[in-house]
């Protein structure tokens, strides 16, 4: 009898094999034909299928922008909030429901400009979230304004002749602020992107993936990225000093996992006490 029970318990549960299609909805994206975000969506579905968690145990959170439309297109739980605030929403979900897989996604304007403070503090706080930034170096939804990663000379109606401002280096900032996993991917390489996204979700703590995702409408020049990207010439490092040198000196087109730290993910202390509510109230008695 005992042996039979043991045998039953030991038998592996049938793991449903999930396909990328199981993680997509039938909502039609609003993106322009040729937008890099289609490939990122596919890579995300591939990564989720590889990890195999049931879609209802995953939450995809975003702010505002073209790429921030992504929650509606994945068949997980989704949250499409206000501009720049994806990370705090994701943080609230993860801290209160640590068993869920939480992914935040969005663009460079959402994440680095209006949401810049949350980016810094999410890296620092190191909650177990994967943050995917589809960087196209432009505000696409508002039809072509410069973002924090736009080149200084890029001409637009809002900044005629260019901003003259040095672009921001999100990977170096993430490292300095304490992100535990830093990688760069390219939408034109969906399989490579899927591998990196899966690894970012698996990695504990705050995982930051910069995904170069061209905007073919307002930045047709970004079609050239295909020729510029290359696998990083070095393997991943856990040494922040080495990572800093790499991230400060690379040209923005090295792909792969560039840093993997070993900081423990943040989870607030919880120490349930028996009959706690009564004890809290007793403290007010004379």
């Amino acid at each position: 009898m005992t042996a039979t029970l043991t045998a039953i318990e030991a038998a592996p549960l049938p793991v449903p094999v999930r396909a990328p299609a199981d993680y997509k909805t039938d909502v039609k994206p609003i993106w322009c034909p040729g937008c890099g975000d289609y490939s990122v969506l596919m890579s995300m579905a591939m990564a989720l299928a590889e990890l195999g968690r049931p879609p209802e145990e995953i939450v995809v959170v975003s702010g505002i922008g073209c790429s921030s439309r992504i929650p509606a297109y994945v068949n997980t739980y989704g949250f499409h909030g206000v501009h720049g605030r994806a990370l705090p929403v994701a943080t609230g979900i993860k801290l209160s429901r640590p068993e869920l897989t939480v992914i935040a996604a969005g663009g460079d304007g959402d994440g680095y400009s209006i949401g810049g403070n949350h980016f810094l503090h999410s890296c620092r706080r190191n909650v177990d979230i994967a943050y995917l930034v589809m960087d196209n170096r432009v505000y696409g939804m508002t039809k072509g304004q410069p973002s924090p990663t736009t080149e200084p000379e890029w001409d637009s109606d809002l900044a005629p002749g260019g901003t003259g401002l040095r672009p921001f280096n999100p990977l170096a900032i993430a490292l300095a602020a304490g992100a535990n996993f830093i990688a760069r991917a390219f939408s034109g390489d969906p399989a490579g992107t899927a591998r990196i996204v899966a690894e970012a979700i698996r990695a504990p703590g705050f995982s930051f993936v910069e995904i170069l995702s061209p905007c073919v409408t307002f930045r047709p020049d970004e079609r050239e990225w295909r020729k510029l990207v290359r696998p990083a010439p070095v393997t991943e490092t856990s040494d922040p000093g080495r990572a800093a040198r790499r991230l400060m000196t690379d040209d923005g087109f090295n792909l792969g996992i560039l840093y993997r730290g070993d900081r423990r993910a943040y989870q607030p202390r919880s120490a349930p006490v028996a009959d706690a509510e009564r004890a809290l109230e007793r403290a007010f008695e004379l």
Binding site: G81, L87, I93
Partner: peptide, 14 residues
């Protein structure tokens, strides 16, 4: 901005 959105996230989570 973060505190209200963290609150929203946790409430969304149940």
């Amino acid at each position: 901005l973060a505190s209200i959105n963290m609150t929203i996230g946790a409430a969304y989570g149940g």
